Simulated scan of single mutants.
Amino acid sequence: MQRGMMLRNLITNPSIQLALFLGLGIEFAFLWRRSTLLSDQYYSDVPLPILLSVPFCLVVGYALAMIWWLIRQTKGQARFTFRFSRARFLATACLAAFIPFAVIDWVPWTPGGLLVMSILPPIEFEGLGFGLLMMAVASMPLYPVAAMIVHHTQNRRWVRLGFLAVVFWSVYFGFMLWFGIVQFRT
């Protein structure tokens, strides 16, 4: 395929157009939020630099476009898409364990991380129950997303892994865009 043809197909693809449009909208919302954070005298965390916000917004826009595409593909197949299977359960468990619920000093805090921290002996941390509770609570709204990803990526395991990674990174970047660089206070 010629280079001009690939570029034209890329530009005219509705999913790519939606991702770019959503990323641009998120960038404008970020710029509005950034000005609010900078003008707030009580806010002491650092807003995300503008050069980093552009790729972050594009990833979040791509994730939203991906979820829109998955919902459109599921139309009329809800009974087959959301039925319980081992792959859907594992995808939901992975998302519930690794989706961050906070990002502090560029480090994502995940329920799975809390679970591992509570099991390791040198660390005195009472987070076992909290980690399991967070995973259970996070798995409820994530099951439809994981089920749609698993259903529409059958026999394409790398695409499935890529979609799950996009969900992780979009939540991570969303936290970074909304809250800025949150730092521990000592």
Rank of each mutant, 00 (worst) to 15 (best):
M1D: 13
R3W: 09
R3F: 06
G4Y: 13
G4I: 13
M6F: 13
L7F: 06
R8V: 05
I11Q: 12
T12A: 09
S15T: 15
S15F: 10
A19I: 03
L20A: 11
L22G: 03
L22F: 04
G23N: 05
G25Q: 09
I26L: 13
A29R: 02
A29M: 14
F30K: 00
L31M: 12
W32R: 07
W32I: 15
W32Y: 09
R33K: 14
R33A: 04
L37M: 14
Q41D: 15
Y42I: 01
Y42S: 14
Y43P: 02
V46Y: 12
V46E: 15
L48P: 06
L48W: 07
P49Q: 12
I50W: 13
I50Q: 14
L52T: 10
V54G: 08
V54I: 08
P55I: 10
P55F: 01
F56I: 09
C57K: 04
C57I: 14
V60I: 08
L64F: 12
L64M: 14
W68M: 11
W69I: 08
I71W: 11
K75G: 06
K75E: 15
R83L: 12
R86L: 02
R86K: 13
A87F: 01
F89C: 08
A91W: 00
T92L: 04
T92Y: 00
A93D: 01
C94R: 11
C94H: 09
C94F: 08
L95D: 09
A96R: 05
A96C: 04
A97S: 11
A97G: 10
A102P: 00
I104A: 01
W109Q: 09
T110H: 00
L114I: 05
M117V: 03
S118C: 04
S118N: 03
L120H: 04
P121S: 03
P122R: 12
E124I: 05
G127F: 01
G127D: 04
G131C: 02
L132C: 03
L133H: 03
A138Y: 06
P141I: 12
L142W: 02
Y143F: 06
P144I: 06
V145N: 05
M148F: 00
M148H: 05
V150W: 02
H152A: 02
H152I: 01
T153C: 03
N155K: 12
V159W: 07
V159T: 15
R160A: 03
G162A: 11
G162E: 08
G162I: 07
F163N: 14
V166N: 12
S170Y: 02
S170E: 13
F173L: 14
F175R: 13
M176N: 15
M176I: 07
F179S: 13
G180A: 09
V182Q: 15
Q183N: 14
Q183K: 15
Q183V: 09
F184R: 15
T186F: 10
T186W: 10
